[in-house]
Design a protein around this nucleic acid. Structure first.
Lengths: 239, 239
DNA sequence: GCGCTTCTTTGTCCCAGCGCAACGTTGCGG
DNA sequence: CCGCAACGTTGCGCTGGGACAAAGAAGCGC
């Protein structure tokens, strides 16, 4: 793990920000203050580890801004991205899974702002804040759903379909509308895409090139813009 | 879904049975009575559907005996087994995932005895029974862990390793020690194995044949006995 | 016992996609 | 402006394992 998060005051954190975070969206002013007062805020550059698989789950986190990849490392050292987590979500919520170690490693995929609280506060948050528990269930439920989908994909779909699906998921989660399409608004390499889809960098690169020739996407290093999402959907369903 | 479960008295259900079920293991006699009184018991033959993906999650279930496959069906009609659930576990606990429909279909893989309760009771169980909530978190956590593992497997491992892994998981969950090895004590076809590992019936069959020739396993239709688990472990790690 | 169905085995063919390898491209720091 | 590192592209050959096919084995009902 990296250096310990530094406790800071949170002048730059607009309280209204928390209102957009589902677990806390219904809190009143005083409660928001209480949540923020107990939080530690930290900025991570891209590529830094927030917590490591297997480490004692001492804190839980909320991603205020940026993107996080949840990865697991195989015995042979390969990385596989299990999930992408967009801003506004909780992570490292081992407690909601009845665990006391983190089940995977979280790595920032872009510069990110992360709040964290001691895991000790988990239970009191659940008790004190209405809807906190049910929102975390939903978070867990969504992630289970996503993982489920990925298992299905991996089991039944061809590489091309999987990559198309991954792209679609990414633009759904983090797409930003631009003039002529939807852009994924965080840096993503071919390598990342291949880890997400369980293929190789080479194949992912080939596919993107092919799609670019067909005018489906446009991409420059670490940037991917989808021009024709519908065609991707068609691809993802199998020709 | 099948016919509605039939409400029955539970003469044949030894109360002590419930003590082996984690979520209720710490209850006293009166509480166990209360839990049982509110349960519906039902026997399912192998291959029957307990609940369907997408259906309203009206009940939650506990598998007293038998074996259940949690499957998802792809748009093209293929079945993929997402999880195997052994006796003693809860299933259909959509509520713990903040959902009100079942996220997958549950099908019995062997004759099974299933208790169920109206989902309405979920909240009161959580409130009334100490440890119920935390045990369900653990159940969810374990399943998330398993799914995670399967994603890693599918992304990084060869078919042979995946099948070996699947077998190992099965003997861990439901292995029964016999004279010269460990037998999986419910009927499993090559087809099942292939669905679990995202390969084809044919390949699974070939692999088992090869292993049988090497003396690693012994199998007769729907029965698989592992003679040399260690060799399988070696295989599963990739030569 | 006889036929039917379900499950399993085995062989042959063939191609998607991985491994390898070499070469472009972009951006950054000095 | 240059060199280097990170990122991306492309060609080629090889092979794991999927598709197809056909036939054996076990169980089941009549």
């Amino acid at each position: 793990m990296n250096e310990q998060p530094v406790r800071k005051t949170l002048p730059q954190l607009d309280e209204s920000l928390l209102k957009h975070l589902p677990p806390f969206s219904k809190l009143d002013r005083r409660q928001i203050r209480a949540v923020l007062d107990q939080a530690t805020s930290r900025r991570y550059e891209a590529g830094r580890t927030i917590f490591d698989e297997g480490a004692e789950a001492g804190r839980f986190f909320m991603l205020l801004d940026g993107y996080v990849r949840v990865v697991r490392v195989t015995p042979t050292g390969e990385q596989v991205t299990a999930l992408h987590i967009p801003a506004g979500q909780l992570l490292g919520i081992a407690r909601a899974l009845g665990r006391d170690t983190y089940p995977a490693t979280a790595i920032t995929a872009a510069e990110s702002i992360v709040l964290s609280w001691p895991m000790l506060l988990w239970d009191s948050f659940v008790a004190d804040y209405d809807g906190f528990a049910s929102e975390t269930y939903k978070t867990v439920g969504n992630r289970v759903g996503e993982m489920n989908d990925r298992i299905i994909e991996m089991a039944t779909q061809q590489v091309e379909q999987r990559v198309a699906n991954a792209l679609l998921r990414l633009i759904n989660q983090t797409g930003r509308k631009v003039a002529d399409g939807i852009e994924i608004d965080f840096p993503i390499t071919r390598q990342d895409l291949s880890e997400l889809t369980g293929t190789t960098l080479h194949t992912a690169s080939r596919l993107l090139s092919a799609w670019e020739k067909q005018g489906l996407v446009e991409s420059h290093r670490k940037r991917i813009k989808v021009l024709n999402p519908h065609a991707l959907v068609v691809l993802s369903q199998g020709h």
